[in-house]
Amino acid sequence: MGHILIQDLTKTYLRRGGVAWQFNSEADPVADDELLVLNHIDLEVYDGELVCVLGPSGCGKTTMVRIIAGFERSTSGNVIIDGNEVTGPSSDNIFVFQHNGLLPWLTVEENVRLGLRHMKDRREQAERVSEYIDIVNLSGFEHQYPHQLSGGMQRRAELARALVVNPEVLFMDEPFAGLDFLTRLKMREEIINMHEYFKKTVIFITHDIDEALVMADRVVVFTDRPATIQLDLALGFPHPRDFMREPDLEALRRDVYVGLGVHYAL
């Protein structure tokens, strides 16, 4: 389970006072009072896929994932997860937020327990919580509050909180934003391992091209707003991936950079 079908998804925002309030933007081809963000998107995500969504800043990646997760409504079009149309947020599809989404007044353990709070068997609940805290390597930090953890540990705690409810789909909206370079690399590795182990459908938003190419089973590249899909490509390369050893991957990387308007960074 974890199959997502997106049909003809369109989203427009109302401009307020004649100024685009959601994004800083240049000229726009749509009506004066409306801002077209997502332009008839069709996308199918298969069970257990790790899909990285790439695109220029402000193109509507986040908007799309928020609609899939049920946090926002589309202007038209449908999102169907495992045969059911999405009408609102649900604990079957957990969202890992761009900024720290841990509840700061709860300890790591209490945060991870959020999704299991209806579990009758307290012992089983405690075992599950500590099992997942262990999986993300946070054993020993159960009773710490989020502000006492480093950025990387906070993301891992949030990941444990998401995984513990055994969701069908995980949404990750630039979950490594604000982490230092090395922590970012380690987190990539952990997400890849986690994905190979749990085989959950993951929709991962990033603007880091290398990150997407190293992690994804499939990359979806958005154009600038109004967003349409510019490139949708399955990556068959085995992990761990190395640009030096995979000339095809290196070539693809070059294409994606150029496709997103960058010519000199290579």
Partner: peptide
Amino acid sequence: SLYFQVAANFN
């Protein structure tokens, strides 16, 4: 508002 979204996500 993030906290309300987390709450909605966990029903």
